[in-house]
């Protein structure tokens, strides 16, 4: 993280403590900004607070008691969710973890290789390769997903784990970030020194460059993890066997059935709460380590 911290300008005045003989406390707090931010936080937390409370309500309480009044049915709801179709809910969670974890790992590896190559080497067609890869960002997923489905159907690969994993491995945004990060973090003379010592290009990459790129690659991994975990369109198109569904698609089908059987609504709500907990926990943990400065690097380039 340190290399990024160095590049960052001195923290803005907002984070520096007041001067020694500063004004009294009342004047030291900026009320309007603090209040604005608190209102923003309230708005952003409202649905999360709602789902946490709604998940404690039994089906009857959900439609009859005041919204933010906790109910008595949480244990019951959990039991129903566990029992629903022999615990298919947990299968969905597991699938999401697999798609997002493995997918993001593969994606980060490909991004690291390509980003490093585009940043370090001077070769013919470098900018063309980069621009063509970047144009991928602009492709609406649906123009890709439907022909991907039809082509995978010809290879008899639809409705499989691979059909959701593979199309997402190449992430143009990941390659873009990895290139910027390699440019900033891997000095050209270090690579040159490695060559002088007779190391192969592959060895220079794995032993010297890769460790230097790790903080940036963590960011690429997390971006891709969230992108795959949140993806809906691709599994929606590719999968029909609900044993392979990720959690987004699973909850969606549950909601769709709930339109005819409102008893399922409590399951949807409890399921939604449990589905956001892992990602929120992940965020709370990683935000300590995750340097979002990489984004500003991306912005400034």
């Amino acid at each position: 993280m340190s290399s990024l911290a160095v590049r960052k300008a001195a923290p803005a005045a907002g984070t520096t403590p007041g001067t020694a003989q500063g004004p009294p406390l009342r004047r030291r707090i900026a009320f309007v900004p603090t209040l604005t931010l608190l209102l923003g936080a309230l708005y952003c937390l409202l649905p999360v607070a709602w789902v946490a409370i709604a998940a404690t309500k039994s089906g009857r309480e959900l439609f009859s008691t005041f919204t933010f009044l906790p109910g008595t049915g949480f244990a019951e709801n959990l039991k129903d969710l566990n029992a629903y179709r022999d615990g298919v809910y947990w299968k969905w969670m597991g699938n999401s973890a697999l798609y997002a974890g493995l997918g993001a790992l593969l994606s980060t590896a490909v991004s690291a290789l390509s980003g490093y190559a585009l940043a370090i080497y001077r070769f013919r067609g470098r900018e063309t390769v980069f621009n063509v890869l970047l144009a991928g960002v602009l492709m609406p997923p649906v123009i890709l997903a439907i022909p991907q489905y039809l082509l995978l159907a010809k290879a008899d690969l639809t409705d499989s784990y691979a059909s959701v994993l593979l199309p997402l491995v190449l992430s143009p945004y990941g390659v873009y970030l990895a290139r910027i990060y390699a440019t900033a973090a891997v000095p050209g003379d270090v690579v040159e020194a490695g060559r002088m010592d007779g190391a192969s290009e592959w060895r220079i990459f794995t032993r010297i460059a890769l460790p230097m790129m790790i903080p940036g690659l963590v960011t690429v991994f997390l971006f891709q993890f969230v992108a795959v975990w949140n993806n809906f369109l691709l599994p929606y198109i590719m999968l029909s066997d609900d044993e392979k569904f990720p959690i987004t698609l699973g909850l969606f089908t549950l909601l769709e059935q709930g339109a005819n059987a409102p008893a399922l609504y409590t399951l949807v709500i409890t399921g939604a709460l449990l589905a956001v907990i892992p990602l929120i926990a992940l965020f709370l943990v990683i935000q300590r380590f995750w340097s979002l400065d990489l984004l500003s690097g991306a912005v400034k380039s």
């Binding site: 923003g40 936080a41 952003c44 959690i247 969606f252 949807v268 965020f283 935000q287």
Partner: peptide, 19 residues
């Protein structure tokens, strides 16, 4: 507040729409 406002980014669009 920064973390709270950033939090919805972690929540899938489908789940957000559902909530």
């Amino acid at each position: 507040t920064r973390l709270a406002i950033f939090l919805p980014y972690a929540i899938p669009g489908v789940v957000a729409a559902l909530l």
